Computed example of a mutant assay.
Amino acid sequence: MSQFNFQRHRRLRRSAGIRAMVRENQLTTNDLLYPVFAVEGQGIKTEIRSMPGVYHFSLDTLKVEMQEVVDLGIPSVILFGVPEHKDECSSQAYAEQGIVQQAIRMIKQEFPQLVVITDVCLCQYNPAGHCGIVEGEQILNDASLELIAKTALSHVQAGADIVAPSDMMDGRIAAIRHTLDEHGYTEIPIMSYAVKYSSAYYGPFREAAHSAPSFGDRKTYQMDPANGREALREADSDVEEGADFLMVKPALAYLDIIRQLRDRYELPIVAYNVSGEYAMIKAAAQNGWIDEKSVVMETLLGMKRAGADIIMTYFAKDVARYLQEGN
């Protein structure tokens, strides 16, 4: 018998049943948002080199993928389009027969229960690979807003349930909200990439979306990784302009930002578990250095604990299977 006074915290850890009883955070399939890449053509299911298990899908193979998503109980997907044609006006971003617009219509026809969210940006649709209109080596803010809003409107007209602007142009939420409301889409929510850092974790995504900048970088519109207070200013602006969700991207190195947004706002908070985070875990697991399942679940639980309501992750199907297994 100990002669010291101390707390016996281990009492609540002594069995799996007790640990489950007092567990503070849970991951469920309802927390998951699955990103998918749609491409033009037929019969295409091509694995992305730097993202094992993630693919480019043509519409016919995307249909098969969406059936698997539904069978796994994942409630929502976010679409990224990879067009064959690019031009300075990013015209395929808002074209009626653009790849994203076609994918939306197919999914909503075949799987109406899925919540379809669309990434709204111009970077993969123009040769410069930047998120707005380019003039020389300047990315024009105000001139870009019309095309960004036009893109969002085209997605909603095709059947998107939610639009998610990722461009980081100032005023884009206000521009999209005005355009949607003007066309009678007052009930469509906006999931803002409110806090998006200029991050080295995006490398594999740029390969997947064919969206690497042809010159310079994105530091004039994406945020400096050193800044935290700026994140609150960005989020404040988006809330005032009409955002319905606030996203933090990336997630893993910015859990403190997720926590600050959770404490400050009542809106749902989305954590984007980005491509670089995914690729690092996959690479380490393939080398036998870590247990993939355990690390994935611990990582995503950390995002939940930090305050995320929704986790946008390429691991969504894996996590859904883990949960079906009871882990």
Rank of each mutant, 00 (worst) to 15 (best):
residue 185 Y to I: 09
residue 185 Y to V: 08
residue 186 T to R: 14
residue 186 T to Y: 10
residue 187 E to W: 10
residue 187 E to C: 10
residue 188 I to C: 12
residue 189 P to T: 03
residue 190 I to F: 07
residue 192 S to C: 06
residue 192 S to N: 05
residue 192 S to V: 07
residue 192 S to R: 02
residue 194 A to V: 05
residue 194 A to P: 07
residue 194 A to T: 09
residue 196 K to G: 01
residue 197 Y to G: 01
residue 198 S to I: 00
residue 198 S to N: 15
residue 198 S to H: 15
residue 199 S to E: 02
residue 200 A to N: 13
residue 201 Y to C: 04
residue 201 Y to N: 10
residue 202 Y to D: 08
residue 203 G to D: 12
residue 204 P to R: 08
residue 204 P to T: 10
residue 207 E to C: 09
residue 208 A to D: 08
residue 208 A to S: 09
residue 209 A to H: 03
residue 209 A to S: 13
residue 209 A to R: 00
residue 210 H to C: 13
residue 210 H to D: 15
residue 213 P to E: 01
residue 216 G to V: 11
residue 220 T to N: 14
residue 220 T to K: 14
residue 224 D to K: 08
residue 227 N to Q: 14
residue 230 E to S: 08
residue 231 A to R: 00
residue 231 A to M: 07
residue 231 A to S: 14
residue 232 L to G: 02
residue 232 L to W: 03
residue 232 L to N: 01
residue 233 R to I: 13
residue 236 D to G: 00
residue 238 D to R: 06
residue 240 E to R: 13
residue 241 E to P: 05
residue 242 G to Y: 04
residue 242 G to A: 04
residue 243 A to D: 07
residue 244 D to Q: 12
residue 244 D to C: 08
residue 245 F to E: 01
residue 245 F to R: 03
residue 245 F to Q: 05
residue 247 M to T: 12
residue 247 M to Y: 07
residue 247 M to P: 02
residue 248 V to D: 02
residue 248 V to F: 04
residue 248 V to R: 00
residue 250 P to I: 01
residue 251 A to E: 00
residue 252 L to M: 14
residue 253 A to K: 01
residue 254 Y to M: 10
residue 254 Y to L: 01
residue 258 I to Q: 03
residue 258 I to G: 01
residue 259 R to T: 15
residue 260 Q to R: 14
residue 261 L to G: 03
residue 263 D to L: 15
residue 264 R to K: 14
residue 264 R to G: 02
residue 265 Y to S: 05
residue 266 E to Y: 09
residue 266 E to D: 15
residue 267 L to S: 01
residue 268 P to Y: 05
residue 270 V to H: 00
residue 270 V to K: 00
residue 271 A to W: 00
residue 273 N to C: 12
residue 273 N to T: 05
residue 273 N to F: 04
residue 274 V to Q: 02
residue 275 S to V: 06
residue 275 S to I: 07
residue 275 S to Q: 08
residue 275 S to W: 04
residue 277 E to Q: 07
residue 278 Y to N: 04
residue 279 A to S: 15
residue 280 M to P: 01
residue 282 K to G: 05
residue 282 K to Y: 03
residue 285 A to H: 10
residue 286 Q to E: 15
residue 286 Q to S: 12
residue 286 Q to V: 00
residue 287 N to K: 13
residue 288 G to W: 05
residue 288 G to H: 04
residue 291 D to M: 02
residue 291 D to V: 06
residue 293 K to F: 02
residue 296 V to L: 04
residue 296 V to M: 05
residue 296 V to A: 04
residue 297 M to E: 06
residue 297 M to G: 00
residue 299 T to A: 15
residue 300 L to F: 04
residue 300 L to H: 12
